[in-house]
Write a protein that binds this DNA or RNA. Sequence first.
DNA 1: GAGTGGTCTAGACCACCCA
DNA 2: GGGTGGTCTAGACCACTCG
Lengths: 252, 252
Amino acid sequence: MGTTQLEPVPEPKYWHLKTVLSEALDSEFSVGEILPNERDLAARFGVARATLRQALEQLELEGRLQRRRGVGTTVAPPRVGVAVGSPQHSWPGSADDAWQPVDCVRSAPPAAVAAALETAAGEPVHVVRRSRMSGGQRVATELLHVPDAAVPDLTAIDAAGAARARAVLRELQRLELEGQDRAVELGSARADDAKDLDRLPGAPVLVVTTRFFAEGRTAALSVATYRADTCRLTFGDSPDVEIHHDPERRAS
Amino acid sequence: MGTTQLEPVPEPKYWHLKTVLSEALDSEFSVGEILPNERDLAARFGVARATLRQALEQLELEGRLQRRRGVGTTVAPPRVGVAVGSPQHSWPGSADDAWQPVDCVRSAPPAAVAAALETAAGEPVHVVRRSRMSGGQRVATELLHVPDAAVPDLTAIDAAGAARARAVLRELQRLELEGQDRAVELGSARADDAKDLDRLPGAPVLVVTTRFFAEGRTAALSVATYRADTCRLTFGDSPDVEIHHDPERRAS
DNA sequence: GAGTGGTCTAGACCACCCA
DNA sequence: GGGTGGTCTAGACCACTCG
């Protein structure tokens, strides 16, 4: 990647720059390698730093780069496939679950969550916090909302922290799971999630909302927040495919 | 939303600004309403236009706003739920399929697609283009790659355009579908996809990759690109839930 | 042609990490 | 303390839409 002047083209500079950098990443850099700093790079391509940053942002969004304040910009490894939907439904916390319980509090959920749980607005529910690791890195955090109605024997629980979280999950297993549905959308990390995921606030995340049905109503509602830069959510049985982001551009 | 001076806080201005604007959207604006232009808004809050834009970008990413060059910034409707995974597997193009065939060409797919299809690099396959509407708006475009091996009777096809696309889909139905798997990840729209989706290049999209298995191998591979700002991908049977993005902030 | 959002510049300072 | 990325400014010009 020499001192490349960008030839003038009608497309935005940052877009062209992104393409050039992307090709350089494929051909001249390997995973983990540190790129020159932003001021140098901008000078090399003859653009303002803000313009260069626009290109880097895109590449980070696509999971090609990783930037850390005070450290530098490195070439990111390919996205990890994290299994989200197993073919057969199962309660959170069962057997081969990839989540680790962190703690559990009682608090009033936001209105939309309360609506899905069919609880009154402002009525507190059990909120189990869990986190999920993959490849030695935390890739997701989750809030699992469980209304009292689903775990009636748990009103006078005295455990705390992770133990309490496990108690709630254990209690859930006693119900027969009748079904679940799931939605995925793009969001931006709130301050607390960002901290958990080792990202800055506002970082792009994939929000997976899962409803668990038992006894004819919603027995639990999970809101899971995945790092969008490093994760590919898989829904089948083979989390080992890699299709998107390919060195070659698509033909025709 | 008056001439609000932001009180000095340790958090970034654009972040605080986003929060303030978000609350204003909930309380003082209705869907479709036009916001003041960026220069006015920036002046009102006493920040540079670039800073204001950073806040607007976030809100657009979260599906709260819609910005169009030459027109203005409007309050976006809630995201539409688009069903992606039906419980029972089925071939693309069958019965209640939400996709409309556009055309079909033969071209060599990118290397990773070729690998999944188990075709030689550079070997052309059928590429069916389809698009998907929801609420009168195009929400996704798809490239469905079908290798010759899956549709052997189609080598000397003479139809063109949508008719040809339908012919390929029809031929696929004759195989017995043995399974499929799916992955979702964040991407940015390439120039052609962006045009289809009425967005600018680089706009955030959700890329859904689906592999269809038949006769012991991958018979087709779909790469679908959904607008991330307007879509919530649903995987259960009830695409009518709305949980995320809620006026109220989450309690504790 | 007037008004909008999109791109770009050249600077400044801040928050963070590490030797 | 020196180097990194993150935030912010005050301007300029461009591309697009619409009356």
